[in-house]
């Protein structure tokens, strides 16, 4: 991919973050091009989730730059608003709004943030719910759905804002194998439409199939990055090799 062609959608430069005296992100720099599918992996506590949350400003960073679609994240609420409008996020624990129906979950932000008329927002919501095969459940409450269904609603909810990039934070970690499969299928379908995405996951089989590029993190640093083939077949560092052998021995789920 040439540097001269389209500008990167996300550009991180020398990002550093501390919790008190503990440094959780160290000199993170990378770009994400439009339509690129980036997978971030690494052991628990390596800073993957924190990194993802820095991209839409859920976590403030202490030094370095985060630029999303030409807007640099600063302390100004305005920049947060602009960036969050263009960045969809899917959480490990779904975080659906339990007191709102599936339809209300999906149409709330388009109505209040994009200022869509309610009927238009609902029509959009319905089309995305259809894409995650849940249009029939539009008037149910989240508690009436299975975990996999809830996560698919969460994906639809994020898509309803027509984001330019989607962030997935371990979207299947709270699910059983059957539900993992249905959620991964939805994400794969989404990837095929050309959506730019960054996904933190422990599902290595999925990562290998989906990713254009894989980042491996350890203790807040990017240790290695490359194509799935480079990362999974030819790990250069000892750390990555150990991590992979642990994951592959431990999880048969990676075969899905």
């Amino acid at each position: 991919m040439e540097r001269s062609s389209p500008p990167p959608l996300i550009c991180l430069t020398q990002l550093n973050k501390w919790y008190g005296s503990l440094q959780v992100l160290r000199n993170i720099s990378f770009d994400v091009m439009p339509h690129e599918r980036l997978i971030i992996c690494g052991a628990s506590g390596s800073g993957k989730t924190t990194l993802l949350r820095c991209i839409n400003g859920l976590e403030p960073h202490q030094s370095g730059r985060v630029v999303v679609d030409g807007t640099e994240l600063t302390d100004a609420p305005k920049t947060l608003e602009i960036v969050r409008r263009e960045v969809g996020m899917v959480f490990q624990s779904f975080n659906l709004f339990p007191h709102l129906t599936v339809m209300e979950n999906c149409s709330l932000a388009p109505i209040w943030v994009r200022k869509l008329p309610p009927d238009e927002a609902q029509a959009t919501a319905l089309s995305y719910l259809d894409r995650v095969h849940l249009a029939a459940h539009a008037h149910h409450y989240p508690s009436e759905l299975s975990g996999g269904e809830q996560q698919r609603v969460a994906i639809a909810r994020a898509l309803c804002m027509s984001p330019k990039v989607m962030l997935f934070d371990e979207p299947t970690s709270a699910l059983d194998p059957v539900m993992i499969k249905e959620v991964l299928e939805i994400i794969t379908e989404l990837a095929q439409t050309g959506m730019t995405m960054i996904c933190v996951t422990h599902e290595m089989g999925f990562a290998r199939r989906l990713a254009d590029r894989v980042l491996f993190m350890d203790r807040g640093e990017i240790v290695e990055q490359g194509t799935p083939d480079e990362i999974f077949q030819h790990p250069k560092s000892e750390l990555l090799a150990t991590f992979l052998s642990r994951i592959l021995h431990g999880a048969s789920a990676a075969a899905i």
């Binding site: 839409n56 859920l58 947060l80 608003e81 969050r84 409008r85 960045v87 969809g88 996020m89 959480f91 624990s93 975080n95 659906l96 709004f97 709330l108 932000a109 209040w112 943030v113 909810r157 994020a158 804002m161």
Partner: peptide, 18 residues
């Protein structure tokens, strides 16, 4: 109210008061 609720709302770009 779980912290994830406010985070999800913020991630959708909802203004604080909404």
């Amino acid at each position: 109210v779980p912290a994830g609720q406010r985070e999800a709302a913020m991630a959708l770009g909802l203004p604080r008061w909404v």
